[in-house]
Each structure stands twice: as C-alpha cells, then as structure tokens.
C-alpha cells in the first residue's frame, strides 16, 4: 500500500546542503507494522513527514494506494492525509483552543468516522478519562501525548505515522499505547509506521528498519 522509491532529501545549511535521506526505498503492506530506528538527527521524522505528504522529497516518489503523492496537488494530498492517514507528532500538536475531548473527536468528525463508543474505549485504554474537559495547557506532557495518540486512532485511518509516540510516557502508559496500537493493527488492518529509538517498542512491531547516514536498511 505504501512504496517509497529512491527518495532523497537534503536541507540547506551554512556549510552547504545537508543530506538527510539518500535514495531510500521502502515497501509497506496493508496491516504491517514497522519500526524505524535510528539515532537522533538521522532523518526519521523527515521520512515520516515525506510519507505523510507534509514535506516534499528532493527526488524519488512516494506511492500510497498506487498514487504518487508528490504528483498530486496539495488539495488531493491533504484529502489523502485527512481520510486515510493520521500523524502523531513528537510535539503532540494539539489544538490549543479545543478541549481534550474536542481534540480527540476533531479528526474523526472531519472525516465523518466519529464513533463515540470506539473513542470511549480508546480514552479508557489510554487512561485520559479524567482530563476530557480540560484544555491542553492544563494537562501534562504525557497526557497531551496520549491525547494526540487518541486523536490519531479515533479517526480510524488506514495508515498511522507515529514520531516517538512514547517519548514522554512512563513504562505503564508505554505498554498501554503499544497494546492499543497492536490491537488496531490486528483488528482493523491499520498499517503502522513508528519512528523510535526505543528498542523495546521496536521489538513489539512486526519488522524494523534502520536509518543511518541517510540510508535505510532492514534491521537484523
């Protein structure tokens, strides 16, 4: 369902172009769960941004459901991101003017996949029932991260892209997240791509790839 071919990305810096991704190739099937491992600054976030249509690669193609994302216009890309994907950012990216409940329901309502009972289960699993009527500024980093995860999951996407989703979580909540995401993959055939430097999390996913010096390789 997802196919990256010869994707390269570099950024301008004072010392000249900084190559982050160099001819990356990756094929992901429906329902697969992959951990993208790598050190800090290895390009994991950039790779997720390119796949989600938020960042354009310098070269290469990203095909999602047989459509090259970067040939399509912004409106079409936004539509795909809206209806088929969900992105969990490193910095939570919650909407500050909405309550936790409204944040969680936002994506699901936009794509008309609002399922109150499903959301209730997600909220319970992530242990954020008590903060539903609060605003993001009134909650902790861990609670905000779980909210971001709940929002992504509630929209029942085909593909979830998660950038360090358990970075701010304790062990108990990390396990809850892993359990929930695992359930989603199994039951709904949701494809899962997780950027992480936690080997513990990575080992719970079906396969692992390593990003190092701009190159992607299957993990041993």
């Amino acid at each position: 369902m997802l196919c990256l071919k010869n994707v390269s990305k570099s950024f301008d810096s004072a010392e000249g172009p900084l190559e982050v991704l160099n001819n990356v190739n990756l094929t992901v099937s429906q329902g697969e769960s992959i951990a993208i491992l790598g050190e800090s600054g290895s390009g994991k976030s950039t790779l997720l941004h390119i796949i989600s249509g938020l960042e354009k690669p310098n070269t290469g193609s990203v095909e999602f459901d047989n459509e090259d994302l970067w040939v399509l216009g912004e409106a079409s890309r936004a539509k795909i991101r809206r209806e088929k994907m969900a992105v969990i950012f490193q910095q939570f990216n919650l909407v500050p003017s909405l309550t936790i409940r409204e944040n969680i329901e936002l994506h699901a309502k936009i794509v008309k996949k609002f399922d109150p009972s499903f959301i209730k289960d997600v909220v319970r699993l992530l242990r954020i029932e008590d903060i539903m009527e609060k605003y993001p500024e009134q909650t902790s980093g861990g609670q905000q991260q779980r909210t971001a995860i709940a929002r992504a999951v509630s929209a029942k996407p085909t593909l979830i892209l998660a950038d360090e989703p358990t970075g701010n979580l304790d062990e108990l909540n990390t396990q809850s997240v892993i359990q929930m995401l695992g359930k989603l993959v199994t039951q709904s055939k949701t494809t899962l791509l997780v950027a992480t430097h936690s080997n513990s999390f990575a080992s719970r996913l079906k396969s692992q790839v390593m990003l190092s010096k701009g190159k992607l390789s299957r993990n041993v």
């Binding site: 989600s52 912004e74 409106a75 991101r81 809206r82 950012f89 990216n93 919650l94 909407v95």
Partner: peptide, 13 residues
C-alpha cells in the same frame, strides 16, 4: 504553530 495541527490533519492551507 496553532494552525499547524489542523494542517497536519488535512485541512488545506
């Protein structure tokens, strides 16, 4: 920064 979450969800710029 306040609008980026909506853009990330898929609301057009």
């Amino acid at each position: 920064s306040q609008l980026a979450p909506l853009w990330a969800i898929g609301v057009q710029q």
